[in-house]
């Protein structure tokens, strides 16, 4: 294994750990601005994490060992995702561990664990949240995979580095199929990251909460890890979206110059993406849980249309 690549791999992970809460902070800031509120500083999520890590954990009497294990597992899953998704370079030693299908698998694994943790204490809200989370999950997963399928049909690969390379470094071609897939990806990302219009990360309203309902019983360091993992997940979805739809600026090599070029590009893309997310969240309203199937069904259809467009228009006969 090449030491430069390994260093870069570690750098990517550390950067993800640091940038993810900042991205959260940036989205919250943008949202506050678009809603004419006074914005908290961009480092607010770090303060929250620090506060939570300092606090004691209050465990329910009947919480099982699974309940205490899940936050770490969740964090580890998201760390793995951040290791795999190419951000600074496509030459990553760990990325052969999983392709896009396995990536969907990791997200599903994390979801399974958090849903189980939600049911562990046995409160009414926990089970309700788990059920809804799994509902969103099984609707979003096929749509997400169809998006990936479109990208991998174009690049003839499901390996993320190959996809990114072939989209970024081949001669520039506009793929109409990717436009459909991109919209589908945005819809899925909103649902998967518990954002408006599917879920609202800022309220604890019984009738509508999904993600918050599952983690209601968590506190202290456990909650901090879960929050951090959620930030990492959002960051991972952003990087995935950039890799699939705006791969320009992700270099192939591992040299210092390459990384120096990739970093500003990444920050720029994150800033723009975060603002877009805040805008979407400001402009739309939270919908009823049972509208979620329609929402994600639309995402699925768009992804399928994207794929068919690719087959009809873009495959040389």
């Amino acid at each position: 294994m090449n030491p430069a690549a390994l260093t870069l791999q570690l750098l990517e992970l550390v950067m993800a750990l640091l940038l993810a809460p900042l991205l959260m902070g940036w989205v919250n800031q943008c949202r506050a601005w678009t809603q004419n509120r006074k914005a908290p500083p961009i480092t607010q999520p770090f303060r929250l994490l620090a506060k939570l890590f300092e606090k004691d954990v209050v465990l329910a009497y009947n919480a099982s060992s699974l309940f205490r294990f899940v936050p770490y597992m969740l964090f580890a899953c998201m760390a793995l995702v951040c290791v795999i998704v190419p951000v600074l370079s496509t030459d990553l030693p760990f990325s052969p561990a999983a392709d896009v299908i396995a990536l969907v698998g990791i997200f599903a694994l994390a979801r399974l664990f958090i849903a189980l943790a939600g049911m562990d204490v046995g409160t009414a809200f926990g089970g309700l949240g788990s059920r809804r989370e799994m509902l969103i999950g099984f609707l979003a997963e096929p749509a997400l995979l169809m998006v990936f399928f479109t990208a991998s049909l174009i690049s003839r690969s499901t390996a993320l580095p190959t996809i990114v390379e072939s989209l970024a470094h081949r001669e520039f071609v506009i793929y109409p199929s990717l436009a459909f897939a991109g919209v589908a990806f945005i819809l899925v990302s909103l649902a998967e990251n518990a954002r408006i219009p599917v879920d609202n990360p800022t309220t604890h309203l019984e009738l509508t909460m999904i993600h918050e309902a599952m983690i209601l019983e968590y506190s202290g360091r456990h909650l901090a890890l879960i929050e951090w993992a959620a930030a990492l997940k959002l960051y991972a979805y952003f990087s995935l979206g950039f890799g699939l739809f705006f791969p320009w600026g992700i270099p192939q090599g591992t040299g210092v110059g390459n990384v120096a070029m990739a970093l500003p590009a990444l920050l720029l893309k994150l800033a723009a993406g975060g603002f877009l997310l805040a805008l979407i969240e400001t402009l739309s309203a939270k919908m009823r849980v049972f509208r979620a199937p329609e929402f994600l069904g639309m995402a699925f259809l768009l992804a399928v249309i994207g794929m068919l467009v690719h087959m009809l228009l873009e495959v040389p006969a």
């Binding site: 890590f53 209050v58 019984e206 019983e217 360091r221």
Partner: peptide, 19 residues
């Protein structure tokens, strides 16, 4: 987490939104 912070844990009744 253990190295940088602490591992204090208290037990209590489930929170359940205060119900």
């Amino acid at each position: 987490v253990r190295a940088f912070y602490h591992h204090r844990t208290r037990q209590g009744p489930p929170w359940g939104c205060g119900f």
